[in-house]
Amino acid sequence: MARRLAERYGWRLYATDDVMAEHARRTTPQQAPLLHEFLAMDMDERWVDRSPDVMAETFHWFHGEGFGLIVEDLLRLPREPCVVAEGFRLLPHLVKPLLAAPERQAVWLLPTPDFRQVAFRSRAVPGEGFVWQTSDPARAARNLAARDAMFTQRLREETARLRLRTVEVDTTMTEDDLVERVATVFRV
């Protein structure tokens, strides 16, 4: 959605996923202890051996580790054109204090369980993706899906508590519908 909006309106896109590896390199174990514990694990330790609950509770990006690096990156960008930042690392409680008008400067997309299942199935190409680097790709995928469902529920609760805008994403929406709903939030 962010990419489509950036193309449509001539905005600059900042995708937090694109800078995760660089941000990981820029941190120390003292600055990001959960991240460095994660990096020290092998693929089975990360995705197969731990429960989804433990995965959710200890996943570094879900705790805001490295968020300051996102802010540093954004502050280095020119003021024009407008920047649209996207990614799961943009946690509501960290973003809201930085916004002058949260009701029209931010929106969180919350996938329904059905949408999440369809998305996981569409990306589950045998041999592709990090789950295939584990000894049990099916279990790793189930653990990841359950962890992500917990994260979505946390986002739902946090955005409600902070009175931030959300858009529920379900399987009945087209990509064009979703782009229009998000554009409406930004009033463009």
Rank of each mutant, 00 (worst) to 15 (best):
V48M: 11
L110N: 08
Y14E: 06
A100G: 11
R26W: 02
T27N: 11
L5I: 05
V131P: 06
F130M: 09
D136C: 06
R4L: 14
E80I: 10
F88W: 14
R139I: 09
M55C: 03
R76G: 13
A24F: 08
A138I: 11
H36T: 08
W47M: 08
P137K: 10
G87D: 06
G127L: 02
E103R: 15
A140E: 03
Y14V: 05
V19N: 07
F130Q: 11
W132K: 03
R123S: 08
E128H: 10
T112L: 02
A32R: 02
A141C: 07
R121S: 06
F88K: 11
Q30D: 14
L13N: 04
L13I: 00
Y14F: 15
A138F: 12
W61Q: 05
E7K: 15
L109W: 10
V54L: 12
L109N: 00
E86G: 04
R89Y: 10
V71R: 09
H23Y: 13
W47C: 03
I70E: 00
R4A: 15
P52L: 12
F115S: 02
R123G: 04
D114E: 14
V118F: 03
L109P: 03
F130P: 11
E57G: 15
R121L: 09
G87R: 08
R79H: 14
F38Y: 14
D53P: 10
D73R: 12
V95R: 03
R46T: 12
L35W: 05
V71D: 02
R116C: 04
A140I: 05
R50P: 06
P126N: 10
W132R: 01
R50Q: 14
D53Q: 15
G66N: 07
V71L: 13
T28M: 03
H93T: 13
A138R: 14
H60E: 04
L74R: 04
Q117N: 10
R50N: 04
M55L: 13
R46A: 11
F115A: 10
D136R: 13
E72T: 10
A140M: 08
P33E: 00
V118P: 04
A138E: 15
F59C: 01
L77H: 07
R116G: 01
L98N: 09
E37V: 06
D42Q: 07
H36L: 03
M55A: 11
R139H: 11
D44T: 05
E72K: 13
T134E: 09
K96A: 12
R50L: 07
Y14G: 00
L34T: 07
P78G: 07
D73W: 06
R12M: 01
A101Q: 15
Q105S: 01
S135R: 15
L90A: 07
Q31Y: 05
L5W: 00
S51H: 01
A21L: 05
H60P: 03
T16A: 13
V83Y: 03
D18Y: 09
Q31W: 05
I70W: 00
P137Q: 11
A106M: 03
P126V: 08
T112S: 15
A85Y: 11
E80C: 08
M43F: 09
A100S: 14
A24P: 04
L98F: 09
